[in-house]
């Protein structure tokens, strides 16, 4: 494999990782602060993609669509938090899983009811079309580089928000002792709604960015949700830093596994067999990595050691 191809595949892995980070950051933030398992996070991703596709089709501008996706997902998140999620904080995880699973069904069928069953169209904006040259003679798609840039910007933004601002201080306080900050007079209800809406907006942003690369359709959020859960388990539940490293690890391992395993096996097996076996192994690879990491660090890479 040439150097250019290797760099291109590493960038692909990084881009997948950054996209997973946008999903996982919200998921892990919500779990860390409120102790809530939110299966409906994938639905918020879908809401973002649909909002972007519809607004972009109506206005002709991807950028207005992108802004709409943030607003729509945050609003959907806030409404869901106030009407449903708020009742679940004191319940055990099984009740939370049941209720948020029900939300998936409501969101999916609701979206299908309103927008129909046929996938929607969303293309990348003209500004980001085209490719940039890579060292080694290859080329890389500009839009995917932009996704990597957005992901890094969000990671830095989240870091600053949590370590430098008053809101961040409250989020950290909420993570370590819920009763105490409520007793100190912080409006914990509003804080929870804000955190939930923030997580939802990140999921919506991921949905809109990725919607331009793939098909915008009902049920698009669930496969990503599973990967996002793998990411936060690897990174350590509740840790944003863990979500970042976990996401990039999963993205790179998954991409490189898909490329390298069939090639490695083709040294020993006939090509069609190598493709089949390699493909099957590649789809297991991230779960094997997760199992190995959990065997040595049961609370994940950056999880609180308890």
């Amino acid at each position: 494999m040439s150097l250019a191809l290797l760099i291109e595949q590493l960038l692909n892995g990084l881009q997948l990782g950054v996209m997973l980070f946008l999903m996982a950051a919200g998921l892990t933030l919500i779990f860390g602060v409120m102790g809530l398992i939110n299966l409906a996070h994938g639905s918020l991703y879908m809401v973002g993609a649909f909002a972007c596709a519809i607004v972009a089709a109506a206005t002709g501008s991807f950028w207005i669509g992108l802004a709409a996706s943030l607003v729509a997902a945050a609003a959907a998140g806030a409404i869901v938090e106030v009407t449903v999620i708020r009742r679940l904080y004191d319940r055990d995880h099984l009740d939370q899983v049941l209720a948020t699973f029900a939300l998936i069904l409501v969101f999916s069928e609701g979206t299908r009811w309103v927008f129909g069953s046929f996938p929607l169209y969303l293309d990348i904006p003209p500004l980001l079309q085209g490719a940039v040259p890579l060292p080694g003679g290859g080329q890389y798609q500009l839009y995917r580089l932009a996704i990597i840039g957005v992901g890094i910007a969000v990671a830095i933004g989240l870091y600053l928000l949590i370590s430098r601002t008053r809101l961040g201080m409250r989020i950290r306080a909420g993570e370590s002792d819920r009763e105490m900050i409520a007793a100190l007079g912080v409006d914990i209800k509003t804080l929870y709604t804000v955190v939930f809406a923030l997580g939802a907006a990140l999921a919506g942003l991921a949905g809109a960015l990725v919607g331009a690369l793939q098909s915008v359709q009902v049920g698009m959020g669930e496969p990503v949700l599973i990967l996002a859960f793998v990411v936060i388990v690897i990174g350590g539940i509740g840790s944003i830093k863990g979500a970042l490293f976990g996401a990039i690890l999963v993205g790179v391992v998954d991409t490189m596994g898909r490329v390298l395993l069939p090639q490695a096996l083709s040294l020993m097996l006939p090509p069609s067999q190598a493709g089949l076996v390699g493909g099957a192994l590649a789809s297991m690879l991230i779960y094997i990595v997760m199992a190995l990491i959990l065997a040595f660090r049961p609370s994940g890479l950056f999880g609180a050691q308890s």
């Binding site: 191809l5 291109e8 595949q9 692909n12 892995g13 881009q15 997948l16 798609q141 995917r144 990725v210 690369l213 793939q214 098909s215 698009m220 496969p223 990503v224 991409t255 898909r258 490329v259 069939p262 090509p271 069609s272 493709g275 089949l276 390699g278 493909g279 099957a280 590649a282 789809s283």
Partner: peptide, 17 residues
């Protein structure tokens, strides 16, 4: 000859190949 994952949504790696 490549077999991809069922439900896969990102084909950047395959397209590079």
């Amino acid at each position: 000859e490549i077999y991809t994952q069922v439900g896969q949504t990102d084909y950047a790696a395959e397209i590079a190949q």
